[in-house]
Design a binder for these strands. Structure first.
Lengths: 217, 217
DNA sequence: CGCATTTTTTGAACATGTTCAATAATTGAT
DNA sequence: ATCAATTATTGAACATGTTCAAAAAATGCG
């Protein structure tokens, strides 16, 4: 391993540890550099902005989420169960960062952010996040129209984004409300998605799928 | 009018004008103070953080949105039409700020923000925003179950938040995609909401309303 | 009007993200 | 090993949000 790889890894670990312990705001670049034993300028040689360090954290969390979800899916073939596993394991993966979640969210959304869930720069972590929901769908046996099934991973990811946003501002004990919402929403999806096969649902469903398709074009 | 009211108004106007012209990042407190003819410290006497100035902007935009929506509702009694009016007038009100929208969004969501749509400090602008959708619902004659009707303004506001988020990152010409999404979503709501009266929808609807009720508790 | 009190104003200083020219270290070829 | 080229490192300086003690101005009462 080259020295530079060493230095980069040192900065990354130091940043992630500090983000977890102290949150976004209290983790200054000066502090990271100091603890990593380098100069502030050197930290900028490796990571152009503080937000790029947040991206490292984001990647870490997504990996964790994917792993945990896979463990929780077990042998279940029911979409509601799988979805609940995906949602709750996501909340578990982000749990340690809840105290400073608004700070991370704000940083993530900043215009020059490397991390925005909606931006081009975050394609890898986003793909990982959507992969969780792809596996929710792939592993279920519920009868869902093919066209809906194709778009479902991303729809479920959007729902997860909503849940995450709720979680960020959830002050209940250990975010009990968010967990309850995750369970309830999973059950609701489990109820509603099979209804998509019924004839009366054809119109609204196609309307919605068209809408999503054109929004994505 | 006392001198202090004068000074506060001068700062507010200067900030809002600059936010519109230059966006969030290029509008520094030093620039605002300079153009208002005061010192930087004095600006902080009136507004504790830069975000409090963003709240003034937010209030202005919401007022504009409410006024525009009222004009656009006209004599229409159809929920899809009224909703479209509400959505599009909102996009019109925020239009001048699109170039810097991610910056404002990021600032809005910051932990210490006075502006977060989900925070206690923004109760007034949020109430105004929800009022738009209250008037969408109050003025329509579509048959919608009472319990859903009661929760609908806030649900529609959440949908509008989603639309706004889409709009922030919409790079299409004059945000044509967001406008098309607004139209399409309004039609979809117009199709789906009346279905809520049908017996088979009773289960999922109640499930959803329960979920929302418990999330809000 | 004078005066005590309160409010407003100021500008220097601070904190933190960021930049960059100069220097040091590393790398790869001979 | 030497050397040219490239990469990594540094620390001072800068930009911008924010703070605060001191001074100035405004206010209200007798």
């Amino acid at each position: 391993m080259a020295k530079s790889d060493d230095t980069r890894a040192k900065i990354t670990e130091t940043a992630i540890d500090s983000f977890r312990e102290r949150g976004y705001d209290q983790t200054t670049i000066r502090l990271i550099a100091d603890e990593a034993g380098i100069s502030v300028g050197n930290a900028y040689y490796y990571f152009p902005t503080k937000n790029h360090l947040v991206q490292e954290l984001y990647l870490r969390v997504q990996r964790d989420h994917l792993e945990r979800a896979r463990e929780e899916f077990g042998s279940s073939k029911d979409i509601a169960k799988r979805l609940e596993a995906a949602f709750l394991s996501g909340l578990d993966a982000t749990g340690p960062y809840h105290d400073s979640a608004p700070g991370f969210l704000s940083a993530a959304i900043a215009p020059t952010s490397a991390v925005s869930p909606f931006g081009a720069d975050a394609a890898e972590p986003r793909a990982m996040a959507i992969q969780v929901f792809q596996e929710v769908v792939d592993g279920c046996t519920n009868a869902i129209p093919a066209e809906l099934k194709r778009q479902l991973p991303e729809l479920l990811w959007l729902a997860y984004m909503g849940l995450t946003l709720f979680w960020v501002y959830d002050n209940s004990d250990r975010q009990a409300k968010s967990r309850a919402l995750a369970r309830g929403a999973s059950k609701l999806f489990g109820t509603v998605l099979p209804l998509a096969r019924l004839p009366f649902a054809r119109g609204p469903l196609n309307q919605m799928l068209d809408l999503i398709r054109s929004a994505r074009a």
